[in-house]
């Protein structure tokens, strides 16, 4: 326990110091993407890992966060920070609307239903003129400031903002793990009927977990919109993104606090490197590598990479 805390402090210290040592945009960008996906992975892990409800629709929350921010900023000039909040509200609303009927489905059926929801959202935004349709939305270029959530000369502010979001996500998950909610969610994953016999309203707790997952993902969506300053439906709501979140958790360790963190640190550099060195022709090469990685993991360490670190120590 003590050892874990020290490791965490060293790890976070290294993250804080990283951009001061590496001044180039590319390593900074890579780490921003790692932390972005790690935070989203933590969000996915809460519903998919701890609660065992595999969601292939989490990208929809990312998109809702991004679009809420973009629409409010472009059309009404409202600060993205407020857009972030509104995005969260809409994401929770979506989670509840989707969760209410879908959580009656068990196992694979829930997963399939979330694919449908994700695709519906993608289609809606691809055809919705007000939201820029398939062309997407360009953010207006505003003066650099924290309130405007835009920084043009350096990635450094973005880096620290996502670091805060990332640490906050770890914090939320840490509390989640130790709360009644977290225990109940794990019970629901292991045996829903057994959980009900102990007075657990499984619908309600699945819904709460899904909402937390939605909020974390939505905040990441807002960050992404402000970071890239251009969003379109396939960059924010693609099914592939939901699958990537699932893969990140699978590689790192399902239902483990640091699982998605490890997963993102393995996954994103590979994606970024293949993108840089192979360009668009190399699209998918990273996924081929992951599939191999997953196969190897499934044989060698089905609990995920996280299990390597805990090997030999008490659980």
């Amino acid at each position: 326990m003590k050892k874990g805390l020290i490791a965490l402090i060293i790890f976070l210290g290294a993250l804080v110091a990283f951009p001061l040592i590496f001044q180039d945009p590319f390593p900074r960008h890579t780490l921003i993407m790692i932390m972005l996906y790690a935070a989203m992975g933590i969000g996915w892990n809460i519903i998919g890992g701890y609660t065992g409800q595999v969601s292939f629709g989490n990208a929809a929350f990312f998109g809702v966060g991004a679009y809420a921010t973009a629409i409010m900023l472009v059309n009404f000039g409202i600060t993205p920070w407020l857009g972030m909040l509104v995005g969260c509200v809409f994401s929770v609303a979506l989670a509840i609307i989707v969760g209410y009927p879908c959580f009656r489905l068990q196992g694979h059926y829930f997963a399939i239903a979330t694919i449908a929801v994700g695709e519906i959202m993608l289609l809606v935004f691809t055809n919705w003129e007000y939201a820029g349709a398939a062309v997407g939305i360009y953010m207006p270029i505003l003066p650099e400031s924290f309130m405007n959530f835009e920084f043009h000369t350096s990635k450094l502010p973005y880096y620290y903002i996502i670091l805060v979001i990332f640490v906050a996500a770890i914090g939320v998950c840490w509390f989640f793990e130790r709360s009644r909610l977290g225990y109940y969610c794990r019970a629901i994953k292991e045996d829903p009927d057994g959980a009900r016999s102990l007075g657990i309203n499984i619908q309600r707790y699945k819904m709460i977990a899904f909402s937390i997952s939605a909020i974390i993902t939505s905040i990441c969506g807002t960050f992404y919109a402000q970071y890239v300053l251009y969003i379109h439906p396939t960059s924010t709501m693609d099914l592939m993104m939901s699958i990537q979140l699932c893969i990140i958790c699978l590689i790192g360790g399902l239902g483990k606090l640091y699982g998605p963190v490890i997963g993102a640190f393995v996954f994103i550099p590979l994606t970024e490197l293949t993108r840089v060195y192979l360009g668009s022709e190399g699209q998918g090469v990273d996924l081929m590598i992951y599939s191999m990685l997953i196969i190897i993991l499934a044989i060698w360490r089905p609990q995920g990479l996280w299990a390597i670190f805990t090997k030999g120590t008490a659980k």
Binding site: R180, R186, E190, D191, L198, G199
Partner: peptide, 19 residues
């Protein structure tokens, strides 16, 4: 039996106690 097999004995009982 429908115990939570991947949890510890203590955690299993805690799930009940949380009520």
């Amino acid at each position: 039996v429908r115990i939570f097999k991947e949890m510890t004995v203590l955690e299993n009982i805690m799930i009940g106690a949380f009520l």
